[in-house]
Every structure is written in C-alpha cells, then in structure tokens.
Design a protein around this nucleic acid. Structure first.
Lengths: 139, 139
DNA sequence: ATGATCCTTCCAGTAGATGGAAGGTCAAGC
DNA sequence: GCTTGACCTTCCATCTACTGGAAGGATCAT
C-alpha cells in the first residue's frame, strides 16, 4: 500500500504521514523503489493517530497513547491519567475563552457600529490596560 | 525610557516589544547609543496591544485596531465588525472544545483507571476512526 | 514513447513569541 | 581608573504541527 492509499484509508494527508514518520510515530517499510509500503497495521496506527489528534491530544500525547495501545501490559490508569490531563487543559481553555467572550460581547454591544468615530471597544483597549473594564466590572 | 521600563509599564516582555518593533507595530526612536527610547505614546500603544492580545485578537487584528485607534476619522462600524469577527471565531472554538470535552469525558468515565490493560479510551481511538463512538452514539 | 500521475527528498513558511549567545553601554563602588 | 553587574544590542535557533512547493525519479495508461 503506497502513501496515497494509506492517506485515503487513514484520513490523514500524505504530507502529514511523512511528517509522522519523520518524528518517529510510524515506521513503514520501504519497497525496492524507495516508496513507503504501508501494512494494514501501519494504516491502523495512522487512523489511531488521526482520531487521537481529532480529540485534541498533542502529538507527544499521541505518541504516548500509541505506546500504551501497543503495550499489552499497560494499566488503564495510565491512559486515564493522560486523558484527564487533556480534559483539564480543554476545560481551562474553554473557561478562558468564555471569559474573553463575555468581555468582548459586552464591548460589541456597547458599540454603536455607525459612521462616527466614538467606540467603546477602542476606549477599552486604550484604557483597559490600566484597569478599567466596561460597565465598571472590577475585582 | 528604555525597553526594560517600557516592558514594566506596558506589561509586555522586552523580547515581545522587540518583536513588535520588528513586525512594525511600533517604531520607538533610538538614543545615540542605539538603545530604544520609548515615548509615553509608545508605551500607551504597547499597553493597547497587550490588552488587545489578551482579548485574543491576532497580531494582524491588533495592527488594524491600532490603525483605527489612531485614525480620528474612523467609523466605529469598522471596529465593531472586526470585533464581531473575532467573537465568531471564539464562539466556534468554544463549540469545538465543548464537543471534544463531551466525548473525552464520556471516555474517561468509562475507563476503570486501574492496573488492568482494558481501556475504553484506547478502544475508541483504535476503532473510532472507523466510526464507533462510546455508548454507541451515532448520527 | 509520451504524458499524467504517482512517489521521493529537501527547503521554506506559518503564528507569536521565547531562549540564548556574543558583545556593546552605563552607573556604582573601590 | 577599573571592575562588576545590570542593562542594552543583534542575530540565530527553537517551539507546534503541519503545509506548500521545487526538483527529480517511478509507474501506468495509451
């Protein structure tokens, strides 16, 4: 199976597959002509990686997950811990974004959005660094 | 005012300030010795940038915002449009993360997290690429 | 044989900094 | 006057996770 087929089968672009080989996530053997030859097992790993990346795991986390996946003697505890760490980061990110969202939505609402120059958004950016938030929300 | 002071005053690391100069966001003048000399106006711009970046605007959006801020004849409409675009991207990102969060939390909950190798998380990653989701949630 | 479509490697670029090396400058203290 | 240390300067490398493209070899269909 050449890289094109492996790409179709795994859902990853060929470029990405080459990159994953470069960083040592997979090691497909090579045909006599130098072409990469993907065994079903390789394609399976690629699909695993694609799914793990889609769930937001970092490439290094994916490496660890793949290692655990291939280790018959793994403890599910290790997998769970890894996933929990990732979940915690996602939650942190969501919280961060929701906080931004509130501030930004307030500012947008306060802005007339017409042809005049007066703008609470710019006013906040200019003053906000000092401390002022819209609507005087201060801690 | 040297870069160290400007950094303290604006809340941005000196490295970042140099970077912002490099990409043309600010143009502090130079003292005879080659040191950057920050006028209050420069520091104000840096603080503006720090706040805008903290709100998640991209550097290019910050450039545009700074341009609007300095343009007395701006229309608040333009600022608002920019901010609305950013808000939309934040909302999209939040949605994406929340979706990941649900899947991941389900998987984590299903995982015993003990010393045994059986693990629904790995099972999902291995099979998930095909289509299976935990709890058979399919569209 | 020829052209299209594969495949290969290698280099560069993306965003937004950050770290570090090598070296110039300045103010204080002795 | 000289050293020490805290500044400052530039330049280059590194990070994440790819992606784009150039140059060239291999394969396939006609």
């Amino acid at each position: 199976m050449n890289i094109g087929e492996a790409a179709d089968a795994s859902g990853l672009p060929a470029k990405t597959i080459r990159y994953y080989e470069e960083i040592g996530l997979i090691r497909p053997r090579r045909d006599a002509n130098g072409y990469r030859a993907f065994a079903p097992r390789d394609v399976h790993k690629l699909a695993f990686l694609a799914r793990a990346r889609a769930l937001g795991f970092s490439v290094e986390e994916c490496r660890a997950l793949l290692g655990l996946y291939e280790d018959e003697t793994r403890a599910s505890e290790d997998v769970k811990r890894l996933a929990q760490g990732h979940l915690a980061r996602i939650d942190a990110k969501i919280g961060e974004l929701q906080s931004l969202r509130v501030t930004l939505a307030d500012l947008i609402e306060a802005c007339a959005g017409d042809h005049r120059p007066d703008c609470p958004i710019l006013a906040d950016l200019a003053a906000g660094a000092a401390q002022g938030r819209t609507k005087g929300r201060m801690r």
